[in-house]
Design a protein around this nucleic acid. Sequence first.
DNA 1: TCTGGGGTCCTACATCGT
DNA 2: TCTGACGATGTAGGACCC
Length: 437
Amino acid sequence: MAASPVFHLVSWFRLPGHCAAGAARSAKIPDAVTEKLRRIAHLDMDAFFASVELLRYPQLRGLPVVIGGGRRRVDEIIRERYAERPLSEIPPEAFPLLKDYVGRGVITTATYPARVFGVGSAMGMMKAAKLAPDAIVLPADFDEVRRVSRAFKAVIRDIAPLVEDRGIDEVYIDFTDVPGGQREGGRVLARLIQKGIFEATRLTCSIGVAPNKLIAKMASEFNKPNGISIVFEEDVQAKMWPLAVRKINGIGPKAEARLHKLGVQTIGEIAAKDVAWLVENFGRSTGHWMHHAAWGRDDRPVVTESEPVSMSRETTFDRDLHAVRDRAELGAIFTQLCEHVAEDLRRKGYVGKTIGIKLRYDDFRIATRDQTIGHFTDDPREIRRIAGQCLKRVPLDQRLRLLGVRVGKLARTEEVAAIAAAAPCVAEPIPDLFTQG
DNA sequence: TCTGGGGTCCTACATCGT
DNA sequence: TCTGACGATGTAGGACCC
């Protein structure tokens, strides 16, 4: 190998403005200690959905609780028996248990006492019920979770403005230029943020601070729940390389299985492989990416603003439906999905020009079809019409488990309207694949 | 055994215009 | 008129993430 591991790591982590001459110089210059380092934090709320429920039902603290399934709110169900009592005074034995759960669905989150039994996110409810039959099961309250999500992100932005939203319970934060962001490698600022979030929401989170997003993401897992992990560039090999390949954000079950089959179990073993070998086995893009990731290299910036690419609605039926025998039911669901997507677009101020459908057959195979039209729309009837044309292009001789509608190629409604006002034109007709020609 | 919903990004391939 | 290269665009599917 031409360069030492230390050379690779040190050269990668210096900020462009601070490291023009790279590793050789930074290794010699004694003021390296005063140099401002790139410090990126990854913050992850602990068992977020479950923790939000425990704010409402504090009597369930310390008990195994999972969130998932069920469309009816539990407080409605138990109100039938405990009509006049405040929610916090309803005894734990009144809550539904996993072993009594009937229906489809997966676990969204599990509290730490529930995780002891081996249940966790994305696990089927039936399997979870076998592992932890006496765990309490609650449905997710998305409205409340969204409210708390906005609250904790507001706390962070007040302290450190460069925040990248990574979903409902996660963010990246650029500590580099935040006052105090360099102190103790970021630990001081991380503690401040944890304290602020707890005061605002009564919820805990875990934070990893590292030279880049890739390592910060891993670091936030090191010390869960309610932990802080600080990783410096010189720690990377010792902390990353013994870990399983799956710990790299971006290596999922497929890539993991492939690596295992090739005899690679840990991140260090990926790092030891030649790039050419990785490219040969995983393709050019993934091979190079995997090599960089294993060496802890990642120069992606913290992105504070982004536009959505698509919006969709999908639903899994209570029972598998047949396109012909359940035509009326499917038609009603289909229309409703189109209306929901249109509502979402209008509420958020977007229009789109690629309309598509997704369906999942009873054997879990997925089929998608798209159609791009000549203009932007957020009209539910038009979405329904184009989606209907897409639906005619998929085989419908097998039972369906799921149906979805998607609108892509989005643009802001106001921008499209402004362009249309500046250059009015007649919308071109939309070809109908099945009724014409 | 059972596997939700809402996304993003990547790849492969077909088609079309130059 | 035919052919090939090439880029842009659309489509379908897959992997992955929260």
